[in-house]
Simulated assay, not measured.
Amino acid sequence: MLRISARKQPYLQLMKLAREHGRKPLPDDARVLMTQELGLFAAAEWLGLHAALPALAGLEQDLLSELSSVQLFPDSVPAIQMLQEAGIRVAVCSNLAAPYAIPVRLLLPNLDAYCWSFTAGAIKPEPDIYQQVAQQLDCPLSSLAMIGDTLEADCLGPRRCGMQGFHLSRDGSPTPDTFTDLTSFARFVLGSA
């Protein structure tokens, strides 16, 4: 639904900075940053970067630049409108660090549910995050259809939990499990309802 047009990757830069300051990376560092409600400075503190304030100011600028560059794909709103006008509830389920929820909410203010990894305490493809979407929508997992651009997190993980999962490959070719745009997916859902 959304894309970042000016990628700066401040959280990745933050983890590199921690490594440069002697912190040995842990396998779940990225997961922790996405499952805790941590802004950039709180994430830096969690990583033990107490003495790196000048570098953090630059990363904060990168974060603001990246957040202001978040845009909707042109097919996002028409697909959402098609579904909602037909009475189908629409949710966003996303792995992201806390600051990224702000532009998503501003660009998509009328969704029926918002499930963020930092509030769920889980990341896709972990079953708990999909369970939380189902709880927010007050429906069983088996009645949910999910689409996203990450095959494991948005297609295969949901399927293992009993959901319908589909892959969004904007530059690929359509298959029964892959769509190249959201309006085609919306038409498919409406035809299945």
Rank of each mutant, 00 (worst) to 15 (best):
D75R: 07
D75W: 10
P78G: 07
P78H: 07
A79E: 02
I80M: 05
I80V: 13
Q81H: 14
Q81S: 11
M82N: 09
Q84A: 09
Q84F: 06
E85A: 14
A86R: 10
G87T: 11
I88K: 08
I88H: 10
R89M: 09
R89G: 08
V90F: 04
V90P: 01
V90D: 01
V92G: 02
C93S: 07
S94E: 07
S94P: 07
N95A: 01
N95V: 05
N95S: 08
A97C: 13
A97N: 11
A97V: 13
A98E: 13
A98N: 09
A98W: 10
P99M: 08
A101T: 04
I102S: 14
P103W: 03
P103I: 04
V104G: 05
V104I: 15
V104M: 14
R105E: 15
L106H: 12
P109G: 11
P109N: 12
N110R: 13
N110L: 10
N110W: 13
L111V: 08
C115A: 13
W116V: 03
W116K: 01
F118Q: 05
T119Y: 00
A120T: 07
A120Q: 06
A122F: 11
A122C: 05
I123R: 14
I123E: 14
I123G: 01
I123S: 12
K124L: 06
K124G: 00
K124H: 03
P125Q: 03
E126G: 09
D128Q: 15
D128L: 15
D128V: 12
I129G: 05
I129P: 01
Q131L: 13
Q131H: 13
Q132M: 14
A134C: 04
A134H: 03
Q135N: 12
Q136I: 04
Q136V: 00
C139I: 09
C139Y: 00
C139S: 08
P140V: 08
L141F: 01
S142I: 00
S142P: 00
S143L: 09
L144W: 01
L144T: 02
L144Y: 00
L144R: 03
A145L: 06
M146L: 15
I147S: 02
G148F: 02
D149E: 13
T150G: 05
T150D: 14
A153N: 12
L156E: 13
G157H: 07
P158H: 02
R159T: 12
R159L: 10
R159W: 01
R160W: 04
G162P: 07
G165F: 04
